[in-house]
Design a protein around this nucleic acid. Sequence first.
RNA 1: GGCGGUAUCGUCUAGGGGACUAGGACACGGCCCUCUCAAGGCUGGAACACGGGUUCGAAUCCCGUUACCGCUACCA
Length: 486
Amino acid sequence: MSVRVRFAPSPTGYLHVGGARTALFNWLYAREHGGQFLLRIEDTDKARSTDESTRAIFEGLNWLGLNWDEEVVYQGANLGRHQADARRMLDAGAAYRCFCTPEELDQRRKLAAASKDAFKYDRRCDRLAPDEVQRRVAAGTPFVIRFRVPVGDTSWDDIVHETISFPGKDIEDFVILRSDGTPIYNMAVVSDDIAMRITHVMRGDDHISNTPKQILLYRALGAELPRFAHFPMIHGLDGKKLSKRHGATAVGDYQHLGILPQAMNNFLVLLGWSPGGDREVMSMDEMVELFSEKGLLKKAAVFDTKKLEWMNGQHLSRLPAAELAPLAAPTFVQEGLFKSGDPFATSPEFYKILDFVKERCRTLSDLARLAKPYFTTTTTTMAPPPFVIDQALIDAHLRKDAAVTKALLTDATSALEALTDWTAEAMEPAVRAVAERHGVAAGKVFQPMRIALTASTVSPGIFDVLVQLGRDVSVKRLKEAAALST
RNA sequence: GGCGGUAUCGUCUAGGGGACUAGGACACGGCCCUCUCAAGGCUGGAACACGGGUUCGAAUCCCGUUACCGCUACCA
């Protein structure tokens, strides 16, 4: 039978990195087995669910490239089936009506807590005489439907944990249908997973204690059991469950921080899974190729953004410019370097700039910042950004030892202008000779030149910068800087 | 409290009874490269939670303890 897995988030917030990791594992598992990866929105908690969250989940998944098969299933649309399944269990005697009110239950729970006893529903309503039950139903007394947990242990062979077992005595008769007729989580999930013909239920291990209940429901419904896999949680740096306190936790946050989707996936896939050996940086294709349930880990992992950034830098510098360009374009648009849809975003000129600076970047923001000085010609939608050197940089690099710096800059410029070949090979000896003539280290010329040419203390090798900028722009900037150096 | 899960450097992890003087990566420090910053190379510090077994031999298997995490709703 073909593998069918699903990612089933509730739309109560943005797509969390933990959820994204669960989605990724499911997606990878489906790809590994040539199966289907389905998406189900668990929107049965009307109070907390929002359309905005649903959209955010779609966006997050799309950005990560975790495309799903078939139509999205909205749990709320299946209310009728959930009720029918609960009803079926009631009719078959696997469940019973419970007339205890939430207030009564709450009180009994508190009582149990006070005497340090574990609270468990005492089944009093299951002992009601049939005619009493009928009388209360006829009288319109509100009731919930409770599942009658059978005696005996419930266990399963978990894909990541191997055998997990729960004694029947520790599972209470749980509610499957509320007094307003809506299903409780476990009921809805099982009903939907059966209807969607899910073969592998793979989720966070915070669902381990739900699993025996769900297994019981499958049995009562006469359905075949799926295989279960429970992935470890992702924690913050302090070892606690990842939350807002830890800063960015939504995948969208990382997208805006300039993280590449493949780097995000690569980082996430290593939280709870290992290909074995020393393998770390992988493309999506390699992840698909390498992924296997064999490497699934049991231990909770800590989300370390430092490593994510490093990972992003690795992907950034390995990606061919043509592939990087569409991912980077939105950041350049945001930085005002060209407008959305500008053909420049797919031009060889842009690719050349990207290849020129990408190696020294960790995020897309770094990329845009470092690339800016090389936007020297008009794109089809924007004029080149104004070239201005920060006053602080001028003071620190151009006006310190102003006389010397000015002479160095002027002489270097003349030497360069005299060159017939505008190549790094021709420039280097010429500029070094200038430094030598002034009796200073070559770096004394290079750094002011760097400021002059890029308005930054950071750039690729200075002669490569000169080549990239071209003769006219280079000479112009050099002369402007020399003028500033007084 | 009850039940369940987990336990290798600060973090992600390799390891599956002898290959372990426990390997790699991030982070941190040093050195090299070098015109800056990255990248890269070399290098330093840094871990098998504890206690019992089993075994000739345990990071690896078993038991217990401890710690941490999760669940314990007419939430999902």
